[in-house]
Structure formats: C-alpha cells, structure tokens
Design a binder for these strands. Structure first.
Lengths: 239, 239
DNA sequence: GCACATATGTGTGGTAACGCACATAACCTG
DNA sequence: CAGGTTATGTGCGTTACCACACATATGTGC
C-alpha cells in the first residue's frame, strides 16, 4: 500500500517491519537475512523447543498456537508481514512457548537467533521496532482473548478470514474447515454452519479446502469490531 | 520465598523484578522509585490514556482489563510482585491499550515513564528483566486465552483465586462475586454457583465480599493446569 | 432495632455450542 | 469409471452458560 523503502521487488508481499528500517540499518542486516519458502503445515517451533531462527513473513502467515491437550488447540496470535515469529528470542528467551505453524504458504526472511541477539544489543531501529511490535502482538493476543470469550463463531470466522486475507494479499486461499475449527477453538461442525451461512449470503465461496472471499465489505460488517481494532493496531505500530 | 537481595524490609511483599536487579543497579534506580499505596478500585490507566507512571507491585495486584463494551469486560493479565504495570512504556508506546485496575490493595514502587525510558536505553539488567517479563506476560495472556475458551467457570475461578493469593500473600481478601464475574467474563450468577460449590467442599469460605481460602491444595486440584503453567512461567523468568 | 443498601441465592426459560453418529459430496488414483 | 480418501453437511440429545426476574440474606447508619 504505502511506499516501500527498502525492498526492491515492489510487491505487496514485503515484510513491513524490515521495510520500516532506515536504509543503512537494513543494509547491515541484509547479509544475515535469507529468503525462505514456508509451506502450509510446516511447524517452525514446537512448545518448549529451542528457537534457532526467527522469521519475517513476506506473504506467508505463521500462526502461534497454544495447546491444552492433543485435542484442544487455540490460535493465540497470527504473524504476517507486519511482524516476526520467534519474538521470544528478542526477549532473551531461547525456547518457544507456543507452536508456530505455517498457516499460509509464501516466503519469509529468515535470520538466526544469534544474529537477532547481536542486533538487539545495538539499541537501533530494529530494537525499537521489535519493541513496538511486541506491544502490538500483546494487544492482538489480548483482543483475541476477549473476542474468543464473547463473540459468536460466525463473527470470529469472518474476522479470521479477513486477517488471513490481509496478510496473504489474495482473496483465495486453501483452508479446510477442520483446520479452521482448530484455529478458532470450536468444532468443525460449528465452522461448517458458520461458513455455510457466509456462503449463503455470497460473502465467501468454498469447496474442499479452498476458500474465496467474495465480498470483503460485507465480511467486515459480519466480523466483530475486534477485526478493526487489531488491524488498526498492527498497521499503526510501524510509525 | 527465596533470599531477598535488595529489599531490607524482608517481608514476602517485595517486588521480585526489582529484587532481581544487581545491587548497584538497584541503588541507581532507588532515587527514582517511590513507594505508593494502591487501593482496591483505583484505576491506574484507562484505555488510550497516557501512561505517566509505571508500577512495580509489592503486595498489591493490578489487573489488566480489555473492554469490549460497557458491559463486557475481561481480565487479560494480572500483575503482581513478579512484574510491572505499564510495560507499554518499555516498548516505546506511551498509551495504555488496556484498563489497569487495582484489584488487590497494597503497596507498589512507582517510577515515572521518563525514568523508565532512560533506564531502558542502558541495556542493563533492568532492560533484560523487562524483556523477560514481557515474554512472561505474553505467555500468561496466551494461556489465559486458551483457559477462558475451554475451561469451566469452576476451574477458572479456582485458578483466579490462587493467582490472587500468590500475589497478595494472604489467604483472605475482599472480593465480591460481582467483581469476580467481571474478571472472569461470566455472569455473577455463574460465579455464585461456582463459589457455592467451592464453599460446600470447604475449599473456600466467603461472606459479603470477603473470601478466605481454606484448602489451597484442594483448590489447586480443582483449578485447571493453566494455574500451574502460568505460575511456573512467572516464577521462572527471573532467572 | 429499623430502614436501607448491598451481596448472594434461586428459578425459569432460552441458546450457542458440544459430542457423536452418520450421510453426502468432491476429488484422486489406479 | 470404480473404489478409496478426504471434505463437508445434518440430525439428535446434552450441557454450560445466558438473560431476566425476584427472593433472601448480611451488613451499615440513623
């Protein structure tokens, strides 16, 4: 959307956190960054596992998932081009407390945890941006928490689809209802019903694991205010 | 519990984050710290309001509350002697996104936001501890989120009472069921039922806004695993 | 000790979501 | 195109929690 400073590929799929860095600082980081492909289903960290790399998604999405048992999961945070997965490293914690699952295929910039720690000791722009992103993520997690507590599945599904769209940059993406139910922490049948309602209203179309958003404006109306709140926060923190 | 390094009052009501600082760094901070009394019901920050001071609770508790509307609240985080309220300041954000409500009367060490920013630029022990606390808080919020989604009111009430006890250091504290219902994001009648069940089992006793924990071990059994998970995290991060 | 405010209990009916079982439908593979 | 796999739909009984209304305590102040 906005003018992209550092990236030269020009597409919308550029990590905005890295892009917000001043040119010289970005250049210093560049040799430590490697573009990698993340594929739906990849698990970047398991709970308790050491974090070896952090990831700055370009057009991919990484879900942060908290697990209670084998059967009950809940997505507590979504990381796209506005942020970084592996934030714990920045906070001087070497192990992940959540599962990090690639929920949207695409590319990301990967950096070693050691490099992050070195950079974080510089008190430069990256340091400041990661601080501000930490706050943004905390706000996202908090808002999701309230949302999960009070809002109906329909609204939460709409919110979730919109958040995914914003990060992937496309209206169409592969997602089964089974998967969605795990993200939202509800039964598959619940998603089935909510999705059917959205499809009946021509807000979305789906078939066998492929979802297409048809009417974004209407979806935003269906979604709870949490979508707007989270979006405002994630968009604004980079300033 | 553990040996207290800096504080000289010796009681259990000492902010553990400050206490974990090396002596020289603590001494440097001391002139900027002021002991203040926090009284149940005090509002330290409202959403969107500027954060002028941060608070390191000694034996007080500060609840971080996310609001959806006038009627639906939810506590997303609890800050006691293991942490600091106003963490946003450390993350270079000047305004609070949540309401900060004193939920347990007691004292806290207060510091101006400006002083926090100055200190945070030093990359010293405070910097590191606040980083690690940030991670701890994020974990707490995430875990609460899953807990609120999946666990029954009974278990969540037990967890909440235990967390309060741990931070106040007493078995008896003033709390109406009305207030509890706001914290847990359920109806007062729901709390009433859950509390009655706990009282019937002699786990707690209560009357007109005063609650006494009678059997902590049994309460821990009633509470979900989330209590232990959060406790482990908040206790461990100081190392 | 009586009025009053506040805290807590209870009862009735409603609903969103659950768990389970099974039906249908779309795609894939040989 | 037959057969298997995976995705989605549907029905049924259950449950935790909701919303509202009201009853009953327990304290406080005159």
């Amino acid at each position: 959307m906005s003018f992209l400073k550092n990236s030269n590929n020009g597409g919308p799929g550029v990590n905005r956190l890295l892009d917000a860095l001043p040119k010289n600082e970005y250049k210093r980081l560049l040799p430590r960054l490697k573009t990698v492909s993340l594929v739906f289903g990849d698990v970047l960290y398991k709970p308790g596992e050491e974090i070896k790399y952090v990831y700055f998604p370009n057009d991919s999405i990484i879900s942060l998932i908290s697990e209670l048992s084998e059967t009950s999961w809940l997505e507590v945070g979504m990381v796209g081009n506005e942020g970084m997965a592996g934030l714990a490293v920045f906070m001087d914690v070497h192990f992940s407390s959540t599962r990090a699952l690639v929920q949207g295929s695409g590319t990301a910039m990967r950096m070693s945890s050691a490099a992050v720690r070195t950079e974080a000791n510089r008190l430069g722009s990256l340091h400041r941006l990661l601080h501000r992103y930490s706050h943004s993520l905390l706000t996202q997690v908090s808002q999701s928490s309230v949302c999960n507590r009070f809002h109906l599945v329909d609204a939460r599904l709409a919110r979730w689809l919109l958040m995914t769209r914003d990060r992937l940059g496309t209206e169409e993406f592969p997602l089964t209802q089974e998967f969605l139910s795990n993200m939202l922490g509800v039964r598959r049948e619940g998603v089935s019903k909510a999705a059917a309602a959205l499809q009946a209203g021509k807000l979305i179309r789906y078939s066998r694991g492929m979802i297409t958003l048809l009417n974004r404006r209407a979806l935003e109306a269906k979604a709870c205010r949490c979508y707007a709140i989270i979006k405002a926060e994630t968009d604004a923190y980079l300033n």
